[in-house]
């Protein structure tokens, strides 16, 4: 497994991309005991602008707090896909919300298309759960992450009354990703 791993969660303000970073950092850093470094950047708008959180996971202390060659990019909007996928690492993967991203600029890369927001709506009735669906998908597709640790981190992040809905959302995202993987053999290892 890769020692140094970079991921980026990009979308629009309000989609919960920052929270995805927090949950994944908690899973990898606290539950898995790895070194992590998380950064977030916002556009000038509080809502509706492109924003991203970026997480570096390593076995050793992380010196440089900048993601330069992400191994995984999640794009939850067309703008995020356009702006945030150009520096993808060789062998890296792009996960897109297939209803929100219509074209992926980088041809020939591993792209996992999942109707993330639609699944959220179907499973929990709420689009706002899309980031939890995405976390399930990322947990499966990013090999550096442990699915159980991620699920635990999701559960702990929210008040208990949301646990059931969140577990369903997480598992639905994971299942969608598994389906893609088993369908075309795992592209990233």
């Amino acid at each position: 497994m890769k020692k140094h791993f970079e991921m980026r969660f990009g979308g629009t303000g309000g989609q919960g991309m920052m929270l995805m970073g927090d949950v994944t950092a908690e899973a990898a850093g606290i539950k898995e005991g790895k070194e992590i470094l998380l950064t977030k950047s916002y556009g000038p708008e509080s809502r509706g602008g492109a924003c991203r959180s970026e997480l570096i996971i390593d076995d050793e202390k992380i010196a440089y707090p900048v993601v330069s060659e992400p191994d995984v990019v999640l794009a939850m909007s067309q703008k995020a896909c356009d702006s945030y996928t150009g520096d993808l690492a060789a062998g890296g993967i792009i996960i897109i919300d297939s209803d929100l991203v219509k074209s992926v600029p980088q041809r020939g890369r591993s792209v996992f298309s999942i109707p993330i927001t639609r699944i959220a709506k179907e499973v929990t009735g709420k689009e706002i759960s899309a980031n939890v669906v995405a976390l399930g998908a990322v947990a499966v597709l990013a090999d550096v992450l442990d699915e159980e640790a991620m699920k635990e981190a999701v559960i702990e992040r929210f008040p208990a009354k949301f646990t059931e809905a969140n577990v369903q959302a997480f598992e639905a995202g994971a299942a969608a990703a598994e389906e893609l993987v088993s369908g075309q053999a795992k592209k990233y290892a």
Binding site: L38, T39, K40
Partner: peptide, 9 residues
């Protein structure tokens, strides 16, 4: 500004 906003364990 970098350390202020980045998260570490």
């Amino acid at each position: 500004a970098a350390m202020a906003h980045m998260s570490e364990k």
